[in-house]
Every structure is written in C-alpha cells, then in structure tokens.
Design a protein around this nucleic acid. Structure first.
Length: 805
RNA sequence: GCCGAUGUGGCGGAAUGGCAGACGCACGGGACUUAAAAUCCCGAGGUGGCAACACCGUAUGGGUUCGACUCCCAUCAUCGGCACCA
C-alpha cells in the first residue's frame, strides 16, 4: 500500500474542496474555536510545530465530528528579525522573504495534513492586516494609553534597538542573546502597568497549568503595601522637601535606621544645593550608571552605597532623625525608588547597615544576631513587636494594620498597590515592523493620523541598517518621513521607529474571525458569534510576553467597545518541547534537529503524527527518537488490513464493550490533547480485533472515525474504499451507557487487604449478592473458617476486601 | 533565596484512593524461510525457587486509610519561572 500517494490524494482533495471552512453564524451548529500560535515566518517548520499543531488539529477534527462549527485558522507572524536579518545579510526584500516564507510554511502545513481554514489565512506584515494593528495603536494613543517619554529603557547594542522588559528577561536580548544595557531614550510606552489587576483577573479565569499561571503572576508582581511620606530637612533643620516611600512591611516602621535612595533618584538634583558631599554623590551616581540594572541585580554579594551629607528625613511614626544614603540595590524603576531600611528585619538592609556601620533597632522578636528576622519568618510565627511605642507586645498581624491605620489617620500614609511589571516599551529601531501612525510636529508634538489615512504603508527601502546616530532605518527614507502636520499644516516628520514584532500577535485571533473586513478590525456580530478562543495551543516560552500582551490588548479593546469579551482565550494549553539527542530544545537552529519533512518523506504523515505524539504527553517535553516508529508503522499496516477481516454488519456482542469504552476514552483524550493514551487505546482495540479474527462493518466504521483525528489520510482512504462515502461527512458515533459496562467482570477477593482469589461476577449484582457469592466460594470459605469478619468492603466491579480476625 | 511542576522497569511512558508497570520500543524464545528481513505466536519489574509460590518494589523517611504511585508532613533530586521588588 502506498501511503505517499494516498496522503497526496487526500491533501489535494481537502484543499480543492475547502473541506475545513468555518461558517460564520452557522444556523444549527455550536461554534468551537481552536487556535494554534501562528507561525513565525523564518524558515521551515520544525518538530516543535508538530508538537503543537497536531493535537490542535486532532481536537478540531474531533469537534467537527461532534457537530461543532469549528474555526481552526492559521497565519504568519512576519514582522521582526528573521526577515530583517535576511534583508541585511542577503539584500532580499523582506516583503519577498515573507511571501516565500509564508508559502513554504503553508505548503508544509498541508503536508502535515492540518485541517486549517485556508481562506482565513493572515499575515501580520500585510498592509490589510497591519492597518488594524495601527488602528489599535491609534485607539491606545487617543485614549491616553500610549505615550512618548524620555526614559530609561533596555537597549540591545548588538541589534541597535530598544527592547521591552519582556524582551530582556535575565538581562539578555531575546533575539541575539547578548547583554542588554539601559539607556535613557525617547521611547513609546503602553500603559500596561495600569492593567495589572485586570491581567491578574485574566490569569485567574483562564484554564491553564498552574506553573504557567504562577509564572505570569510572578511577572506581574503585584504587592500590597503602604506608601509613607517622609519630610526632608537640611542641616539647618529647615524642611526642604518630601520623600514618598513604599513598604510592604509597615510593621517595622519603628525600626528604620536609614533611608536608601536609588542613585538615579530625581530628588538629589532638586536638593543639590543642600547636599554637602555633592562631589562624592555625583561620583557614586556615575559609577552605578556604568553598570546596568541587570548587573546591579545579579551582583548581590557586595553592597555599595554613599551617604548623602547635609540631608536627613524624619520618621513620621516616632519623629526620629534618619540618615539618607544612596544604594544601588534600590531600583529607580520600582515603586518610588526609595526604601525605608530596617536592618534588623531585612537581609539587604542588614548587610548594608553592617558595611556602613549603621545602627540596628530590632522591633520584632527573634534572633537577629546573625541575620535579619525577615517578613516570612515573623509573619509565620505571628511574633510580637518590641520597642514600637504603643504597639509593643502586639502580634505582627494585628500591628501591621494598626500601624498603617495610625499613619493614614495622621495623613502621612496611604494604602498602595505596586507591580513589578512595567509599562510596555513599544518602539524598535527597525525597518521591518509596523510604522507608527504618528507624525512628530515641531509645533504640535505627537499628532495621530486620522483613521482614514490607515494603513500607513511601510515604504520600500534599499538600506535596512539603522542610522549611525542610532535612528531607525526608516529615518533614511526622507521622502516618506517628511510630511505636513495634520493639525497645523506645517512641515513635520513621521515617527521613524516601528512597533515591536509582538504588536501583530497581540490581537491576531480576532482578525481570523473576519480577516477581510476593510471597515473594522472585525465585525462585532461575528466577534460575538465566535467569542473567546476555546482552546489555544502553542509553546510556553511566550507565556509572560505574548499571552500577557494579548490579555492587555483584549481588555483595552473591550473597554473601548471594539470586542465583546475581556478574555481572549478560555483555555491555554502549553505544549512541551521536542528535545534532541542532547536533551536540548529541538528547533530549526538546533544542530541535532530532525526535520519533520524528512520523517514524513520516509514514513508518511500519519505515521509521523502518531509517532511523535505516542512518545509523550502534550505538556511534557518529548525526547525525539526514531526508536519505536516501526511499531507505529506496523500498527498502521494492521489498521489497513482490517479491511480484509470484515465479518458481519452491526456491532458484535464480542466488541460492544470495547468499542464503547474506546469511544469514551478517545473522546476524553482528544478534548484534553492526550494523544499518547488515545493512541494506546486504539492499539488495544486493534489487538483485540486481531485476536478475535474479525471486525464487523459498523465496528470498522466507528474505529476509523475514532482514529481519523490522528491519522486523517489513511482513515479517509479506507473509509472511502469500504463504505463508498466520505468520512468527513460522518458524525461521531454514540454509545449507550450500558455498553460501557461489561456483563461479566473479574473481581479480586482480598482478605485483610491481601489478594487471595479472583472470581467472575455479573456486573448487575448488588453488593449483597457479590458478598454472598464471595463467601460461598469454596476457596474463600475455607480461608474464612474459624475467623470472624469484622468489616466487608465492596468496590463494585473491582474488589471485595474482607477484614477478618 | 522565593514560587511552581515533576520523580514509576533497560528505554518512551500508563494507572476516578482499589490487581502498579497499560500501550509501545529494545530484548529473549518459537513458527514461517535454504537463509535473512518482514510477519505471526509466546515470555519478561527485582530477588529466591525446577515449580506452584514467597518476599521486595512507584526518589527517601514518616503519617492517614481496610487499602496509597495517587492524599498529608518532612527531606532529596531534576526541570521551569522570578529574583537586592522595598
């Protein structure tokens, strides 16, 4: 049997007949939206793509049999580095690179037998698409959620571009892996921090693995605390300013012995004239400026700092004078960039105080002789306060609230929530991205284009490198850059930075719903019909970037009435990685990589699909190996040979139980993307049929449908041959609950939890009847002689356990 | 350091608190074959025993339970996330 020609035949047929077209507003079928994280257009598909697409495909095919109107689309994430780098290296126009790349991955997808609705294919670098990415940016801008500001941003000197925090995790550029530095630059930001609580609510609502949820919560980094205002005085005891400090440990306020500021803190410049050791302060600031924030964060051993002479603050809780220090462990980007330091109860403060001989005031019970007694410890023990005025002797948990109340009543403090997540640095000095629909006018500032001028098309250029002054490559396209201000009509220039490649992926699932709409990002009624994505598959590496961005934009679009729901996805299934022989992630760049196309050429698509997913669960990492693929090939041969074993028409009594439980098993497994156990259940059924040396026509029919989501080609072929009709026209077989119960079952008989016997009983028997049969059993009866039964445990269909003495 | 997930044969991996190791791979034996491959049949967690069988076994140590891979506590290891976050 020639799998290759069979697979080709069916792939061409599906393509020709648009077999997997989703229907808007289907009159009878309920909708189901399956999404796979679209392709980054960079080259060929790799094994990782199989790991994510095939389970989604199986789910989509299963749901169609189940009578759902399934939307299962695909597209290309095309802006970004691969195309830009190819352009720089080889001079190929990124437009062309992407067009070729798209064709390649779509063709390869067809060879994988994926049942996408090809008519909805989108590509983020297509002006018809990015018109709406720009439109969303305009809305963000017009609603005050996008702003341009001179601020410290992550910058990759290797790629010559600004990066977001999400793109600089661990201080490394997400793209090139080189160290990221921090620079003050004019940058665009989206007010993502403002959405912290809403994103957390999305995290709670979505169905997703706990470790992924936790990663997102960590990234958002919400904390609740108190912000306290400290008055600042000069050495003539004149009040010269105010300093706000955020703390989550207000209970330690009586233990403050110094206050530490981030070296970059703007207060220093304001109070420069009062600072007696300005030279020293300036030097320290310069020194820390040379080290990136990442360096400072990773270097935790040696505390460095600098005392600020001539200024002090007053602790409002007890009116104590407190010295002021600069310390590079204080980060300017978090909270107010200032810390109230309590050496006895914070290990960092402890080390800093030791180094600078700052006194300690212990305010909570515990042994602070070797290290600080920190929050975690004293909260767990609910220790008592000491040396804290009227709060001394109070348990921490109570004191925490009472002290906060007191300070709030005094008017020097307020409750505050903080996030580690920052606003999204949204501009890149790149050619291959969405141009900002913004004109920079020397008189009016940043002026938004009007919606009717969208899309603002990216001009074709010859030179893809950034300007030597660090400006974006687009700055060289002067004809495009020079324009008139829409507000005042005078000469102005376009924004020449482009959007990050995450922009296009932050809303693409919405566009699939109405991909060719010229008036709206998608028709609202269609958005309502398709709703949230029911199941979103893809890798886990984007969980703190793409998925959070997706939550952010969907919330915003919901708030401006552009979409009907706050939740982009109902369920997110994170797929594991395919590992190479070294145990490393297999990707296109991996040296030990195996191309899915090469496996398909040798073994066929169906076998390849089954083999990879038989190796391990969807969420687990799968070490790739050819070992075992022969077993899959043999299984498929056996499936093929079922055609020659048909005897009888309807479901036989020999197989009714097996068929019904197979139905239940694979249904559950497809729903949960557990393809490995679905495959083993299918194998077990074939084994049983082979043993019995027959299969009835109806049994084969159902079996083919059960296998079809995994092995769509061969099952389509056999179906056509045997039944002279199309498998895709069939619906999922149903079964009766009674078929799930074997009429006769073997149970285990235990005496004092030890197996002593096995016997067959009728499944319909009551517990009483079972017990009777067990006790009447000769073998058991002899063992029971002279013993008293203390307890009888019956687990229907499984076992009887008699506790005797 | 904090948080999360995971830990089962030679290997990949199965098991709503109820016969651990399903389903496969690799392996051993047999059938077919001049032979090999393919295919088919049989075997197989470990230890002891010719055997029936016995004992031990799901990272380690405790606990709950008639019964624990599964639930609880502690420890260890691996992977992942966050990390001087005030």
């Amino acid at each position: 049997m020639d799998f290759k020609s069979i697979e080709k035949k069916w792939q061409e047929k599906w393509d020709r007949e648009k077999s997997f077209k989703a229907v808007d507003f289907h009159p009878t079928k309920p909708k189901y939206y399956v999404l796979y994280e679209f392709y980054n257009i960079s080259g060929n598909l790799h094994m990782g793509h199989l790991k994510g697409t095939v389970p989604a495909d199986a789910l989509a095919r299963y749901k169609r049999f189940k009578g759902f109107n399934v939307l299962f689309p695909i597209g290309g994430d095309a802006f970004g580095l691969p195309a830009e780098n190819a352009a720089i290296k080889t001079g190929i126009d990124p437009h062309e690179f992407v067009a070729n790349g798209m064709k390649k991955v779509l063709d390869q997808s067809k060879r994988l037998g994926l049942s996408f609705d090809w008519d909805r294919t989108i590509c983020t670098s297509d002006p018809e698409y990015y018109k709406w990415t720009q439109w969303i940016f305009l809305q963000l801008f017009n609603h005050g959620k996008a702003y341009k500001e001179k601020a410290k941003v992550n910058y990759c000197p290797h790629c010559n571009t600004v990066l977001s925090n999400e793109d600089s995790q661990g201080g490394k550029c997400d793209r090139c892996g080189n160290d990221v530095v921090q620079e003050v630059r004019q940058s665009w930001f989206l007010k993502m921090r403002e959405y912290g609580d809403k994103l957390l609510a999305n995290v709670e609502r979505i169905q997703m693995a706990e470790n992924l949820k936790e990663a997102q919560r960590n990234w958002i980094g919400r904390s609740e605390g108190t912000e306290i205002s400290f008055d600042i005085f000069n050495n003539k005891d004149q009040k010269v300013g105010k300093l706000d400090i955020y703390t989550t440990c207000v209970e330690t306020v009586y233990g403050i012995t110094f206050v530490a500021l981030a070296p970059e803190h703007s207060l220093l410049d304001k109070l420069k004239d009062n600072i007696e050791n300005w030279k020293e302060v300036e030097q320290y600031r310069k020194k820390t400026a040379l080290r990136s924030e990442f360096e400072r964060m990773s270097d935790q051993k040696e505390k460095t700092g600098c005392k600020v002479e001539g200024l002090y603050v007053i602790n409002p809780a007890n009116n104590r004078k407190v010295d002021l220090y600069l310390a590079d462990f204080v980060l300017v980007g978090y909270a107010t960039g200032a810390v109230m330091a309590v050496p006895s109860h914070d290990q960092r403060d402890y080390e800093f105080a030791q180094k600078f001989s700052i006194p300690f005031i212990q305010v909570i019970e515990g042994d602070t002789s070797k290290m600080a007694v920190e929050k975690k410890e004293y909260l767990a023990k609910n220790s008592k306060l000491i040396s804290s005025a009227e709060f001394s002797g109070m348990p921490v948990k109570e004191a925490k609230e009472k002290i906060a109340d007191k300070l709030i009543k005094m008017g020097v403090a307020r409750k505050k929530v903080n996030y580690k997540m920052t606003d999204w640095a949204f501009n890149r000095q790149r050619y291959w991205g969405e141009p900002f629909p913004i004109i920079i006018c020397p008189h009016c500032g940043e002026v938004a284009l009007s919606e009717k001028d969208l899309p603002l098309v990216l001009p074709k250029v010859k030179d893809y490198l950034p300007n030597s002054n660090g400006d974006s490559p687009l700055s060289k396209a002067t004809e495009w850059v020079d324009c008139k201000c829409p507000k005042c009509g005078r000469d102005a220039k376009r924004e020449t930075d482009t959007m990050p490649n995450w922009a296009g992926s932050s809303w693409y699932w919405l566009r699939y719903i109405d991909p060719h709409n010229n008036d709206k990002l998608a028709d609202f009624e269609k958005l309502k019909y398709w709703g949230s994505v029911d199941c979103y598959t893809g890798g886990t590496e984007h969980i703190t970037r793409h998925v959070l961005y997706a939550f952010f934009w969907q919330n915003f679009l919901y708030e401006i009435g552009a979409v009907p729901t706050r939740d982009p996805f109902i369920r997110k299934m994170g797929s594991g990685l395919v590992l190479d022989s070294e145990g490393k992630k297999m990707s296109k760049s991996s040296a030990n990589g195996v191309s899915p196309m090469e496996v398909i050429d040798k073994y066929g698509t169906d076998v390849t699909r089954l083999h990879l997913h038989f190796l391990g669960g969807y969420e687990d990492n799968t070490p790739w190996t050819y070992d075992g693929i022969n077993g899959i090939t043999a299984f498929m041969d056996r499936v093929w040979s079922l055609q020659d074993m048909i005897k009888g028409k309807e479901i036989s009594k020999e197989h009714s139980y097996e068929l019904a439980s197979l139905n239940k098993k694979v249904s559950d497994d497809y729903e949960n993307l557990k393809l490995n156990t679905a495959i083993s259940a299918l194998m077990t059924f074939v084994k049983k049929v082979k043993e019995d040396k027959f299969i009835t026509k109806e049994e084969l029919r159902q079996f083919l449908i059960f296998l079809n989501p995994l092995a769509p080609h061969i099952t389509s072929e056999i179906y056509e041959r045997v039944f002279d009709s199309q498998i895709l026209d069939q619906s999922w077989p149903t079964y009766q609950e009674k078929d799930l119960v074997k009429s006769v079952v073997e149970i285990v008989v235990q005496l004092n939890s030890k197996i002593v016997s096995r016997m067959e009983i009728f499944a319909t028997m009551s517990n009483q009847e079972i017990l009777e049969q067990v006790k009447n059993n000769q073998e058991v009866a002899s063992l029971l002689q002279g013993k008293t039964i203390l307890k009888e445990i019956v687990v229907p269909g499984r076992l009887v356990n008699l506790i005797v003495k």
